[in-house]
Design a protein around this nucleic acid. Structure first.
Lengths: 131, 131, 131, 131
DNA sequence: GTGGTCTAGACCACA
DNA sequence: GTGGTCTAGACCACG
């Protein structure tokens, strides 16, 4: 699994890292129960700070994506991530609204938006092969 | 036009304000050429600092949504926002990917996602009435 | 003589107006001794504030481009503008330096810059015809 | 690299600072990838407010001269500034026109102007030595 | 009265 | 220690 970070991005590195891991899980490149590199080794692999990796891991644990065992280290949560509920949908909607409003102002058509979303789903579902 | 801000949110106030304005433009509650409140009056209306409003205005000007007219003050750009191009779509895709991956992990179905997007488009298109 | 103002420009209107008049003089569309419209009429023609026109006229008088008679009104200075001296050249250089540095960083070649300057001189010298 | 500001000037401090940095880049006293002082240290060095420095940095980032790197701080953009295009040339011409018209009225000869421009190019190209 | 500039000082997120 | 955000208050240029 490749982890691509952009050090010039507005998005904090730990956020980017979280995203990459979540995408990895969505693509099934990381499967439930699978072990992730240790904080230390991942940090040195990517060339970032220990604390940064740790922050990403901790938050993903908090959100139910990862489990952190004392012995077995960090693993993808065997039961999968918590399921989307009403509250989750509302939050997602609040995030999506400004993005869609912006694209709407720029005259990106509904159809174009739909295609864009579809292409992302394809990426995720075809993802296993890219590993 | 109502502007609702969440002062507890992680999202900076000026970002929320930018979003509200963009949504207002998308809903056609703010029309091209229309004048926006002065930084001072809007700031005191919302109960925030004028510099915060100014930052939002400046960035929206920079992005092509607003114009600073020497006689009419701050106005919605008469020509509308810059049109979406290939680069814009790529940026949007990069923003959307982690959101979709996350919802995918949480087993939010494609159909549910589609409905969510559709409901946002409805909001925007019906928006004029809410004014 | 056409006066084109951009109300969205960073440049103050009175500055733009001054520039237009100076360009008019350079192009000999305005000749020494020629009378300019009154503050009042020019202001209403262009659709700007009296004070704005007045400010432009006053500064041009200060700089030696115009004469303001009580009876004859505002006229182009019969003796022409004050000649460039060493101090003037230094000031010009200070203004030009950042412009050239900027274009230099953007890899605009010396030759391109030279052509650009030349095209402006041509405009000025051919200007009489455009009147 | 020396930064000389004139606190009495009409030109805003942040503008002067931007100009100094651009000149520094043109002179290759600041090279692509090189790190700039932090807003705080530069501000205290020059004796101005950190927000003023920040404004200059932000605008230069926006214009493509600088990059904010999460690890290395503020750096000169590794790819150099964006290249001059047709639009840039037009903008430059608009800026140059009044300057040239003014000097033309004051009977500064084309040749004198040419020499002045040339001397600025020399400054820039010899600049490395002045460091 | 409008936006633009500048200062000062505080708190926070990030790495 | 870095930049990012927010507040507060002052002065000025512009129209």
């Amino acid at each position: 699994m490749y982890i691509q970070l952009d050090f010039e991005s507005e998005t904090p590195i730990y956020e980017q890292l979280k995203n990459e891991i979540i995408i990895g899980i969505a693509k099934k490149q990381l499967v439930p129960g699978e072990r992730l590199p240790s904080v230390r080794s991942l940090a040195s692999d990517i060339g970032i700070n220990l604390h940064t990796v740790n922050k990403a891991y901790q938050q993903l644990k908090q959100e139910g994506f990862l489990l952190i065992h004392r012995q077995r280290g960090v693993v993808v949560h065997p039961d999968g991530a918590p399921k989307a509920d009403e509250h989750y949908e509302q939050k997602l909607k609040t995030t999506l609204r400004p993005l869609i409003a912006d694209s709407y102002c720029r005259e990106l058509s509904k159809e174009q938006f739909r295609r864009l979303v579809k292409s992302i789903y394809s990426e995720l579902e075809e993802g296993k092969k890219d590993e």
